[in-house]
Computed example of a mutant assay.
Amino acid sequence: MHPVHRLEELLAGAENLMIVCHNNPDPDCLASAFALGRIAIAVGIDEHHILYSGDISHQQNRAFVNLIDIDLKPFDPAAVQDRPEESLLAFVDHAVPGENNRVPEGTPVDIVIDHHPNEEIEAQFIDHREQIGATATILTEYVRELDIEMDAALGTALLFAIRRETLGFLRGVTSAEYDAAGWLHEHADGALLRTLSTPSVTGATVDTIAEAVRNRTVRGSVLISGIGRTSERDALPQAADYLTTLEGVETAIVFGIVKDGIQISARSTDSRIHIGNVLDGAFSDVGTAGGHREMAGGEVPLGIFAEYATDDTQLFAIVDQVMSARLIAELRLTAETDT
């Protein structure tokens, strides 16, 4: 039996579905939640909600939500804990309560559909495929198998998510992504895809990327850059993506203070490095971090750092020193080279 038919049976017995996105959801998470909502409608669930916490601040993500017209609602922990028995709780593109989401630890989850590495998943229905390049690929497989009615919004959402998650079929891509994209091509809106692929960029985002370039240090093929405080959380992965294009750089790690936490984004094309494991090893004792071999992220609460500084300049000097030292130790880096 195809996994989606087990999911179909589970959904058929529910009256309500709560789909929880991970913090600061990206197109892969949003499109997957959108598709799961369509599946819920098709099997007869009267009410479903797509919930998120954090921010949708990346210009591409904002355009995605607005142009695809995804109905998102802010996440309320109380609503999840007090949900009726006939309600199901689903995670897409993440897997464990309390990890990259605001769901209280220990909360029972009914459905998990994800492609990120994780060994602690518990749910009634689990479809966890680390080898797949995008969660949207799995959901595309579902809508095909169930013959869900397709329209331009759903087709465009899934195709854009797969393209974005794999960096245009260059990162973590498998034959499943090509197969899904070939099928989705007939259902997607080409003009909308182009619009989503070229959103306007704010001056603040450009400034953040410029700061990452200015503050870079390079050791071997590893680049580390701290950018201070920024309101542009989603500029960090954009900066990491850009910095890996510099000659001689195979691994780029960018971190900065966003609100009351230190956000980290990393990219690597070095086959010797699993960047998700590197971040986990460096920061799991003080925050949450991890991801794939080529792409990872994390967050460390400011916590004790803030007690030793009276202004942002002093605070970030401490943060920069500690974060860089942990990364250098975990990567076993040696002498600094020219920047």
Rank of each mutant, 00 (worst) to 15 (best):
R219G: 02
S53E: 14
H58G: 05
L17Q: 03
I70A: 01
I264A: 00
L170C: 09
S271I: 06
L315W: 02
A176V: 11
R214T: 12
A78V: 15
P74L: 09
R62Y: 06
V254C: 04
E186F: 13
A325P: 08
N100S: 14
L243F: 11
Q131W: 10
E120S: 14
S221G: 05
T339F: 13
T140D: 00
G37Y: 10
D93W: 09
V143G: 06
I273S: 02
A266R: 02
R164F: 13
E86D: 14
G287C: 11
I41F: 12
D320S: 07
L88Q: 04
V286L: 06
I328M: 11
N16K: 13
T339Q: 12
I111H: 03
Y52W: 07
Q60G: 15
P237T: 13
T166Q: 00
M1K: 13
D46Q: 15
G276H: 03
I264Q: 00
I275M: 05
T244G: 08
E177V: 02
V4E: 05
L89F: 07
S53M: 13
I224R: 07
D114V: 07
L315E: 12
N16S: 10
I132Q: 06
T337W: 13
A239V: 04
T230H: 01
R144Y: 10
R163H: 06
K259L: 12
